[in-house]
Design a protein around this nucleic acid. Sequence first.
DNA 1: TTGTATGCGTTATCAT
DNA 2: ATGATAACGCATACAA
Lengths: 397, 397
Amino acid sequence: MLEVAKKVALTRPAVRTDADLTGSTPPLGKPTMATIRDVARAAAVSTATVSRVLNGTARVSDETRRRVSEAAKRLDYWPNGSARSLIHSRTQTLGVLLPDIFGEFFSEVIRGIDKAVRDAGLQVLLSSSHSSAEGLLSAAKAMAGRVDGFILMAPDLEAESAVDRIRKRFPLVLLNPRTQTPGTVSVSIANYEGAFAAVSHLIRLGHKRIAIVAGPMGNADSDERLRGYRAALVAHDIEPDERLVLTGAFTEVSGYEAGSRILRLRPAPTAVFAANDGMAIGLISRLSEGGVRVPDDVGVMGFDDIPTARYLAPPLSTVRTDAYELGACAVSGLLDVLGAEGEVLDLRWVMPWDLVIRRSCGALHGPRGSLTTTTPETTSEPAQSRGPILQREEESC
Amino acid sequence: MLEVAKKVALTRPAVRTDADLTGSTPPLGKPTMATIRDVARAAAVSTATVSRVLNGTARVSDETRRRVSEAAKRLDYWPNGSARSLIHSRTQTLGVLLPDIFGEFFSEVIRGIDKAVRDAGLQVLLSSSHSSAEGLLSAAKAMAGRVDGFILMAPDLEAESAVDRIRKRFPLVLLNPRTQTPGTVSVSIANYEGAFAAVSHLIRLGHKRIAIVAGPMGNADSDERLRGYRAALVAHDIEPDERLVLTGAFTEVSGYEAGSRILRLRPAPTAVFAANDGMAIGLISRLSEGGVRVPDDVGVMGFDDIPTARYLAPPLSTVRTDAYELGACAVSGLLDVLGAEGEVLDLRWVMPWDLVIRRSCGALHGPRGSLTTTTPETTSEPAQSRGPILQREEESC
DNA sequence: TTGTATGCGTTATCAT
DNA sequence: ATGATAACGCATACAA
């Protein structure tokens, strides 16, 4: 096995060695790239003409067009984006401000944003891990003049004030906003409804003692899912028990730790609703270690339907929310706002969602009828579907 | 359950309603934000003085400083980033060009980049899903003048030519480069070594018939891992069998499909090395469905050690590569290049890695000694560790 | 200590 | 059809 390690060094000191330029490699660094003026000079025309040719913004004679194109290619001219932004007051860039991007959910959101943005010929300036108002604000400030608007997700209560200040300066789309501000475009996950449906399903299966592994308190998504959990219990005449409400951090390890606490609960719950799939994964792992079988001894439901969910053992029942589409819709919404020329748009999109019943929540041991379950091959049409539901409130003010 | 859906709409038409401005909400859109000239006017000083105050770049009398600061705050002045970039020829922004960012590995890479960039007071311009040379090049072109350099990952063979062109124009750090170009800084995963170690471990457990679920052909990471797989077999006097080499796409579903093919293999392999954890997850799921137990009937090893890996059933044995650190190191490397003032840096970092032995590869049923396994609680120190190995070649040319 | 003037790299508005 | 020139918003060299 020693052959695998050829050269071993220690840590990562920032070593900067002086270097003679060997003729072989082109001198890197800043060879000061050609500007539009260089092209103009080379083609013996004015910069205005170069601009016209390259942007196709006005008629140019075939001869000069040829000369300019040739010169631009020969000098390998690439226009300077900052200069263009300055002139046009348009950056062709969307700022994306997110909380801590951990796990597959955010990975998918970013993928969706990236895809939609590229399709629109735009760019993404990304900054994440914002939970405090100051952090959010300084990030936005650093992006001023470099973005045309923002896609903003700020689930943490403490960041709320920053959202308002950003809203006043920039076109904006909110992701899962905590409050419903008039004159704002937002795209949301059906947190409350999804949680309500998930817990209702567990109840329908016969469970009466249902625990929840919530996210961090003060997090908007977590709060809404917790609210849905409680509402479902109440709607089915089950008295909520605060001892069954555990707190996690939306990470696998926090679900694992919550599992330890659940194992000590007496009387033990017969089902657990985890506020996201990551925590469900950690939870199931811990329960199994504790000798508690899922779903035989305890049923588990997650939230998100991350790509991994259907491949777990047991496959995870969960609330499907299309994170990729969420990101794409946010872009689409921001484009609408940018196209609205100062008009105030008041749109609220809620993403479609589904209850995806796999094996982790178990089959019926209550009173009611039978239930189909899905395998990876057949799961494109979830057995238990609430959707697609696309809620949109739309007002102009 | 009907209560969960309150208002139902259909699809997402781009509706743009005219809107009268109600007095309550501030008129959004473009209220043309204050510029440095506005602040100068309000404070009755020159723009130069405003700049000096706000940047602390020269001494200013207390009285004017106060006036300027007050005016800036009152007008809520935010400097224009594009204008600053233009003047300084420094954008304070790093361009990040990635292939399709699917799954937890890339999620972690981006997190690492984002964190390091923010710590350095910079920004990230992100663009992904690049596999073709043209796509890569046009993305880079669109970023010209808006970034100081690039972090570039282009595992696909066809994108190679674009890398060279970008290298000539911009400071650059390569992620997992296919070839070792002189005068270039790169940060890499020990693809070959990790695969070699993983397969060697399977062999040591007594396996002789070992399949691989590789990534797409032509992908640099996949090719290297495949090479490591073959080398390990050869090194242990096992004749590679091409029928045991399957191709996937680094996704869960492709691992699932590969599982179907593996179930049909005769004679059946006793172990499978999946070129990443995502495929291992799909693979295990499919094998279980086929009545093949992991690890009892077949051992499985993955690659990456994504956060989920240790929580699977069975917990996944895999090659740990710190994707988060990979991203952070790339930023650090690019910062070095940017600080090197035109000097040519030739650095090649290889990230430390570990073999993480959990349960999916099974315990010894070969000739040799015993093996410790790790549980989630105790896994911070992997039982079977090859590292940390940090390989760094460093030359100046 | 402060102001004036110039330029960063573009594009748009005038001329011609 | 093409060229000179004035912005865009900011920071700096140079004067005062």
